[in-house]
Nucleic acid binder design. Structure first.
Lengths: 186, 186
DNA sequence: AATGATTCGGAGTGTTCGCTCCGATTCTAG
DNA sequence: CTAGAATCGGAGCGAACACTCCGAATCATT
């Protein structure tokens, strides 16, 4: 429940502040990690602590909202690649892109899991949309012969989640290439 | 500094309590995550809070000690496999084993990183020993033709770290197989 | 422009948790 | 067995932090 149902259309300044808080939260959590205090988010957004909690009733809700925004961004990019790139390049390019931008996302879902919340359920529609887009990317790449036909979406998701966490561990660029070799037909 | 230098040999009950605390910490952090309180560790170990802090002067030191114990355990197993299994089976078997047992390790190093501590530096010798053992495993597997010759230890470490985090994401069993396919010669 | 409703800000609250302190307890040397 | 030292236990301290409350400020409507 991340304030999904706008009972009333939200006042102008309220909407502006909500956006500022969300953006500040994204930046702060990316820099200082999800354990950064809500007060720091409020300071960065230029609002009071009360304002943060009115829009996001709990810290977990704020983490969720940031994570959802990230997933929506990814899904948007996946759909763009479906239209513009060729099947193989679209799939591998998107995979690489998600891995590159994964640092924040991992920390967020880790923090949610730590609080006893299932990230997959929390992200709801946003996660499902990203999954659908990735599924399309995969199907097209398989149809074009760029990816083995016996690979399932669940396996790709596992690999994506895994390699996202491998970033920053040294030889992660070539490590991705090794995974891609495993995904390609022999 | 995880009480590495025994200035004096440590009294009998002190050594016993230290071991109890370390074991309890391993269990508690595995179950409740690294954010579990030290008091819970003390309770589980059947000692007072003061005792925990005498042996591990800070909570981070306790997390470090648990992580080091895990790494030492892995290194021990790697050396055992070097002696008993054939090169290919030793390498892939050890890789699989580490991934299976990775849940706790990941949470621990995550928590350390969150506290501004570099896990690689903190684990010191234990991490280096594990790295050496894995290096031997890799060389032997490559010499036997079970693993591509152009793969480096750094890349294997990145893949290992990554796939450790992929556990529990659904199709992680077959996902590992895909990575292994990428590691094998064509 | 004025009024009523909504939102803002930040001081304040209650709680959690890491860590300390010291009297009581347990161990070891002679 | 006994004295002296090392260790233990857990109540208590202080800081950090998520969250609340309410007077002041801002917005929408007539």
């Amino acid at each position: 429940m991340t304030a999904a149902t706008p009972g009333r259309p939200l006042r102008a300044d309220a909407a502006r502040n909500r956006a500022k808080v969300l953006e500040a939260a994204g930046a702060v959590f990316a820099e200082r990690g999800p354990s950064a205090s809500t007060e720091e988010v409020a300071r960065r957004a230029g609002v009071g602590a009360g304002t943060v909690f009115r829009h996001f009733p709990t810290k977990e809700a704020l983490l969720e909202a940031v994570l959802v925004a990230l997933l929506e961004d990814h899904a948007r990019e996946a759909r763009a690649r479906i239209e513009h790139d060729d099947p193989g390049a679209a799939f591998f390019g998107f995979f690489t892109r998600v891995v590159e931008r994964a640092a924040t996302k991992n920390a967020l879902s880790g923090a949610l899991a730590d609080a006893g919340i299932d990230p997959r359920q929390a992200t709801g529609e946003a996660g499902a949309a990203l999954k659908r887009a990735l599924g399309t990317l995969l199907e097209r790449a398989q149809a074009a012969g760029a990816v083995r036909a016996d690979v399932t979406l669940a396996e790709v998701l596992a690999l994506l989640a895994g390699m996202s966490h491998a970033a920053g561990h040294g030889g992660d660029g070539r490590a991705l290439e090794i995974v891609f070799d495993g995904l390609r037909p022999r």
